[in-house]
Design a protein around this nucleic acid. Sequence first.
DNA 1: CGTCTTTTTGACCATTTTCAATCAGTGTGG
DNA 2: CCACACTGATTGAAAATGGTCAAAAAGACG
Lengths: 249, 249
Amino acid sequence: MDKDKKAKRTSCRDCPLRDLSSFRDFSEKELAFVEDFKTGELVADPGATILVEGAHSAHLYTVLTGWAFRYKTLADGRRQILNFVMPGDLVGLQGTLMEEMQHSIEALTPVRLCVFERGKISKVYTQHPTLAFDITWMAAREERILDENLLSVGRRSAFERAAYLLVYLYQRAQLAGILSDRKVEIPITQQHVADTLGLSTVHTNKTLRKLADRKLIKWRDRACDILDEEGLLAVSGWEGFEEKNRPFI
Amino acid sequence: MDKDKKAKRTSCRDCPLRDLSSFRDFSEKELAFVEDFKTGELVADPGATILVEGAHSAHLYTVLTGWAFRYKTLADGRRQILNFVMPGDLVGLQGTLMEEMQHSIEALTPVRLCVFERGKISKVYTQHPTLAFDITWMAAREERILDENLLSVGRRSAFERAAYLLVYLYQRAQLAGILSDRKVEIPITQQHVADTLGLSTVHTNKTLRKLADRKLIKWRDRACDILDEEGLLAVSGWEGFEEKNRPFI
DNA sequence: CGTCTTTTTGACCATTTTCAATCAGTGTGG
DNA sequence: CCACACTGATTGAAAATGGTCAAAAAGACG
């Protein structure tokens, strides 16, 4: 895993995520603590494995920039993508709290992460209850997303599922502040879409085509334009996010 | 919702869950705090809705006895069961932390729950970091279970999926201490199984029959004997739990 | 015994997968 | 600049998995 590039360190005070309207504000004390909690930064190349199933991670991370995804595989190689990881997301909590990670994380683009020391996490709980609360909040948020994903894979048709995934990614990218116009440069292949939806690549391709035929999206090599957000929401039957002032660390 | 039966109160010190080997021990101070945090108890009848999607729950619960399940539905009624709830499980955290619940919970058997006041949860974080940590731990555990479920629904065949679900329930019931011999009195219908696996009832029936033909299980009306735990694990390709000393509140 | 719920079955239909190519776009070395 | 190698997107056809419909059988229960 060629992920061990140490990068120059950004101060938490200058953290670009703080400027985004969807994240909550921090007190000076909190900032000082997080600044201390942070051990360094790490950059992973596209395709690099950031965390691997079975490992007992020594670190906890927050994504600063870039896209990644969480996934699990079966013995024969079948892969299920569980969720996508964007700036502001906390990663590696499972490996920090429990014995070992039960999923892997792979970078889609160059990913820059803040590194936090596993051992120091108890200090968050003893010294900064508000931040501890935020960690729980983020875990609950991930759970909520997984709930919706499970509903999608279990009960929505391929067409609805694909529509859901694309608006979902669109809205998340928007909230994470990584969007150029209505164009989401989703850095994923149709293979990734297939592994998220629980479909074959072939059928995924035909399904995306159908969405494109209806002028809802436009798929391009490793990118996708969202042409009709409302239309996608309608097809999927999803209500969308109403997330404001979410915390992060 | 006919769930409003107030029940007589059990002291946390006498909590039957404390005796089970799979749960962690508590300090005297923690016990005293939880005792105070607990507002009362509540009993729900089979079929009753304990928490409903869209509500802003005023309470947080821990299940003392009984089975329930978490689920979401689409507008046209399609239902996806997300996970099952057993003694020791924390319930309603989403509704406590965020604006509103995005899933419902329904009782399968008579369910007895401990009730905690939503407003007091911040006291857990400020006064009892170890318990706050436990809450996060439980959220991470739920996430892990959902990950495996998603893998199952997305990538396992109907046959593997069914095998997975049944050993999973068997092992959880065992850890929760609600098991009569190898016989799991799973209080669910094939309809519930279908809604968990993302299959139709008809196909679920045929799949369960195939498991029975291979002497892995024996299905009975609202009950299921696990005849061959190892066999089910092998079919599903799942490793099983290795959970010890889990926390609860 | 009659009613209700749950399980079981069979026939037929739809969605999705698999297999096998082909096509398009990108980057590389000559 | 072009041939060649790659990866990702597309297609068509055959096969399989799972869904729908309709109805019967089997328990559970008052």
